[in-house]
Each structure stands twice: as C-alpha cells, then as structure tokens.
C-alpha cells in the first residue's frame, strides 16, 4: 500500500490527487501530514504542494461538476472527518471514470452520498456560526467573538460577516484551532494570537466596554419576555439550539 501525506491544505490535497493519476499509484491512501507519523507498516510519500497541479485538478473538476461540485468538495474537505480525503478521492475518480456526467447527483453511490452528508453537516455548522456567534464589545472598540466549531468553518463565514459589519472592527477567534479573522474597517486577515493574549481574551472580564454588560442584560431580558410560558417545549428548544452551542449564547449566560 502506498500512503501519500500532504500539508493539510486543499491545494496540497489536489496535488496529491494529481500525482496519483500522474504516477499511476495503485492501492493508495491520502493522509494529512499531522497523521503521517503514526503510520508504521507502509511507505509514506510526502507530496510537495504544487499550485500548477492543484489548479489543473480544480479546473478539471469545475468543468465536469460545476462551481457547485467544487463547493461540495471544499465543504467535505473542511469537515476534517477521518478519511475524508479518501472518500473525496474515490468520488473524484468516479467522476473521472464517467467524464461528462454530473456524478454528484448519483446519490446511490456510497461516496457521493457520504459527501452529500458531510456537505450538509458542514453547511449546517456554517449556518449555526452565522446565527450563534455573539460579539462582545471590548474596551478598545473591537467587537469580539469566541468560537469552537465542530468543523473548520471560520473561513466560510468571513464573507457573511464582512458584508454585514462594515462599520465596526471585529475579531472572530476559533479557540479550538488557534486562529481567527480580524476586520479593521477595510480588510480581513487571518490572525493567530500569543498564548497569553488568548488566555486573557478567554478568561478576563475587565476587557469589556463599560456599556457591554448592560446590553447583554437587556438581551437576556428580551429573550425571557418574548417566550410564551403556556407553550413551553424544551425538547423543541434543545433540538433547535443544541446544548453544545449554549456556551456561545449571551441569552444563556447567568448574570
């Protein structure tokens, strides 16, 4: 068995796909570099990410599967699911073997179906981030949000928040993966914070603007009073707002 290790980027993955066809590897598996050390009994070939090869794969896929197909590949890739790379590779091979057909509509193929499920999960997580992210105003005028998403969706929500909040500085930080996106009224950029700053942002209360706590309390007040007690239905409530997201939500805070 041949194992290809790549640098965990989408371009790296596409390069690996290209090289499987280029060198006609048989019985092959693709894994992220972070997992490559754990391989004991097989040869590991390290793929060097190559933009030209990656672009050729992208162009080929876009031609056959359309922009929507490429979006689905990206979403499934960002799911970071165990074995996502190999599911994607098998589906891509299935597409190449049936050129001219939009194979992503063939839901009777197990890999296509699995991808459509992953796309759905990642899309749902993206939507939940757009809904459940809560900004808190810091003393220095930045609206700041902490997130811990199940999938690596931060880059997928940047456009949404950039369109929406153009007249305020904001920072959304993924504490699970240790990176964030900062908007400075002009552009967005990916940032990583030093450990001590990360800790400060996560734990300290003194960093917030004086009015912040009042607005949070007003929101909690509103949340309680817009509820109709006679219709209470906690099962439905938890179904819509799963408990693992409660830590994001201002309205679930206890003051």
């Amino acid at each position: 068995m041949t194992i290809l290790s790549y640098d965990n980027t989408l371009e790296g993955f596409f390069t690996a796909v290209f090289e499987i066809f280029e060198y006609k590897y048989q019985d092959v598996s693709i894994i992220g570099a972070d997992k490559a050390q754990n391989v004991l009994f097989a040869e590991v070939i390290t793929v060097i990410t190559n933009d030209e090869k990656s672009d050729r794969v992208l162009a080929r896929l876009e031609k056959q599967l359309g922009k929507e197909g490429v979006r689905q590949i990206l979403y499934a890739f960002l799911s970071e699911t165990e074995d996502a790379e190999n599911i994607l590779f098998r589906a891509i091979k299935y597409a190449v073997d049936n050129s001219g057909k939009n194979v992503f509509a063939d839901f009777s193929n197990p890999d296509v179906l699995k991808i459509s499920k992953l796309v759905k999960s990642v899309g749902r997580e993206k939507h939940r981030m757009e809904a459940f992210i809560r900004f808190e105003l810091l003393k220095d005028g930045i609206y700041f949000a902490k997130i811990y998403p199940d999938f690596n969706v931060l880059t997928l929500v940047v456009r949404h928040f950039k369109n929406r909040y153009q007249d305020q500085k904001w920072l959304i930080y993924d504490f699970k993966r240790g990176y964030g996106v900062y908007y400075d009224l002009e552009n967005t950029e990916i940032v990583t914070l030093d450990a001590d700053v990360e800790k400060k942002l996560q734990d300290e209360d003194g960093i917030y603007d004086d009015k912040e706590i009042n607005y949070q309390k007003l929101w909690v007040e509103y949340f309680d009073h817009t509820n109709i007690k006679e219709r209470k239905n906690m099962k439905l409530h938890v179904q819509h707002v799963p408990k693992r997201y409660w830590k994001y939500l201002t309205e679930k805070k206890i003051f």
Binding site: F132, N227, M234, H237
Partner: peptide, 9 residues
C-alpha cells in the same frame, strides 16, 4: 437567520 429560539421552540 434564526439567531436563537425561545424555550417554547
């Protein structure tokens, strides 16, 4: 977008 849900769902 639904930003949250009340306890009545």
């Amino acid at each position: 977008i639904c930003h949250t849900y009340t306890e009545d769902g």
